[in-house]
Design a protein around this nucleic acid. Structure first.
Lengths: 343, 343
DNA sequence: AAACCTGCGGAATACGTTTTCCTGGAATGC
DNA sequence: GCATTCCAGGAAAACGTATTCCGCAGGTTT
């Protein structure tokens, strides 16, 4: 008895109580294709219920392919991440699969460590959800780890921007940025500041490039567009906006934030500094997290289909390997009260 | 070969490559207490690295006590829940334990089903995070399931209000409500409406009772306090506030909402109806989710130590069984701009 | 009527790991 | 110099389940 504290009831106990062999009990409880006599079946089911038997997933996993999916997320407290994860959880459950969730708090070496850790669960698929998956950041080692996992028959799905050759689901970040940029240009804003987040993050860089493309298409000149970089998150937006306000806004009539949390932080700082949104400055975000409709003024943003991404990710994860897919989801503009028309 | 698609590299392969026995390889890789010769150790480690060996958690779990903790949460997208869960995840990781997360979306029968499902993982502990755990709601079956799990040596920890006899971590909901009620009474509000959430939820009922107690202590009469019930969440607060505004506010100078999301929804509806916060009506919440500081006006609320609750829950979960603990955490008042003094 | 399927229960085995037990050799004590 | 203790490596058992194989009935075919 290796761990005496664990007198779990096993298939043996159920079989004994039902007066049948372990094989028969297994066939009844394990959903085998083989038929067993109705009477035996009833006895086994009754015994299992009486003893509150639950199958040992570890032992089962040694014989059957496991039906669990490991999910590695950057940061569960990020609202956009939470929506994706919640959708995955729902979808996986309806498909009868387990999901084990881990968060890496954006540390790159933690990602590697977490992948190694979760590989031990021999999951059917590994779903990575992050904005950090650029090839150079991979440093080779994470890539090798994922490759070897796939060679062992697992499936890797990446949610977010990536240039790796795994199944992936991404958002068209450039188009989303362009949507916001074009709208702001069309509504008469002549000078614009972009809160570009962290330059090294590929999706942030794409959104920023999209902003510029949209603004230029709407007639703004290069010199009317300023870009500042900030931590991605409420605090980063807050700090960037505070600095901007302290510098007298530099003529900015609009702030294009790289996502909703940055935009919301920025609005908070503007309010504290006595800068009125949208009368003094328009603010836009990207994502359309639920919160975007709750702040005052409600945030104009580009809605990304976050829940759909979660659903599709699980679909990919459960598909038979062999196919290699890449899905790109488009955002759509949601105009609310944090922006207004100029002139 | 049960699943041919899984040519995983096993301890046997490593041992063979290193020219040692499986036992020795296991001792090196499994962190045994037994010593092995430095040379053998080096050979095993080299072989493992070269073959990209990862231990099979399922097989290991059959011999060792598992170090995973199963977490069953109501709804991961709720901000307060997300904070608790994130804290648990962090804490568990520093303690070297896995956390697997599942959400039940508040359906009572799903809770039972989820518990049964996760028991299959033979986790060291089961942490239930929910506001729905009232004894009558348990219906006997969930209680029996948890009891039998505990009898098998597992540990059950409940985060939230409960009258069940498991380890539990709760917030002093009554005191939190009283804090808000007393503050509103002290700042000169004469007529108050309570947004009481769902009457059947124990923690909501306690907060509401606390509101009343605090208001009465501050000198308000029974007839100056109105209580309406609403769905718990942003939408519920929004609807309740819209109805209140349509009815001409019924003289209410303050709205005490049962949590921050309800309060934020209410503020949103008030704004849409042209009711000014805090000039026409003060609004308070409970929880102090990060969002509370981002809305306009920033929300006066009672801060609950959500992250601490997560940390303590994991501490309980990892403790040796035998002790039975109940921890109650106190909130503290955070005054912001959604309230003002009357007269 | 004899040989042959068919269907189903049960014994046995495999899964990959940890751990107990055994064994042989080195080190130590007289 | 011989007996005893210690040490570390290897063989084997055990964990709980799914599955393969075997055997035994009962029915079908020629």
């Amino acid at each position: 008895m290796p761990h005496a504290a664990r007198p779990t009831v096993t298939l043996h106990d159920v079989a004994a109580a039902a007066g049948v062999s372990v094989s028969t009990a297994s066939r009844v409880l394990g959903g085998s294709t083989r038929k067993v006599a109705p009477e035996y079946e009833a006895r086994v089911l009754a015994a299992a219920a009486a003893l509150r038997y639950t199958v040992d997933a570890a032992a089962r996993a040694m014989r059957r392919a496991s039906d669990s999916i490991a999910l590695i997320a950057d940061d569960l407290t990020t609202p956009s991440m939470a929506m994706v994860v919640a959708a995955m959880e729902r979808q996986a459950r309806t498909a009868g699969a387990f999901v084990t969730v881990s968060s890496t708090m954006a540390a790159s070496e933690r990602q590697l460590e977490t992948v190694r850790l979760l590989r031990a669960l021999r999951p059917r698929a590994l779903v990575l959800t992050s904005s950090r998956f650029m090839a150079n950041a991979f440093d080779g080692r994470l890539l090798k780890e994922l490759d070897s996992y796939e060679r062992e028959g697992g499936r890797v799905v990446i949610v977010g921007e990536t240039d790796m050759s795994f199944d992936s689901i991404g958002f068209d970040d450039f188009a989303a940025g362009r949507l916001a940029g074009a709208f702001v240009a069309e509504t008469g804003h002549r000078r614009v500041t972009i809160f570009g987040g962290v330059r090294e993050l590929r999706n942030m860089a794409l959104r920023t490039a999209g902003f510029v493309a949209g603004l230029r298409a709407g007639g703004l000149a290069e010199r009317d567009i300023r870009t500042v970089y900030c931590e991605v998150g409420r605090q980063g937006g807050f700090d960037a906006a505070r600095r901007l306000a302290e510098d007298g806004m530099g003529g900015a009539e609009a702030v294009l934030a790289v996502n909703d949390m940055v935009a919301i932080g920025a609005m908070s700082a503007f309010r504290a500094a006595g800068v009125a949104v949208p009368d003094d400055v328009s603010v836009t975000g990207i994502d359309d997290i639920p919160l975007a409709g709750d702040v005052t003024p409600r945030l104009t943003t580009v809605a990304l289909p976050l829940a759909q991404a979660g659903v599709e990710a699980i679909r990919f994860a459960l598909e038979k390997p062999g196919t290699r897919e890449r899905l790109t989801l488009e955002g759509r503009l949601i105009v609310r009260e944090s922006t207004r028309t100029r002139d």
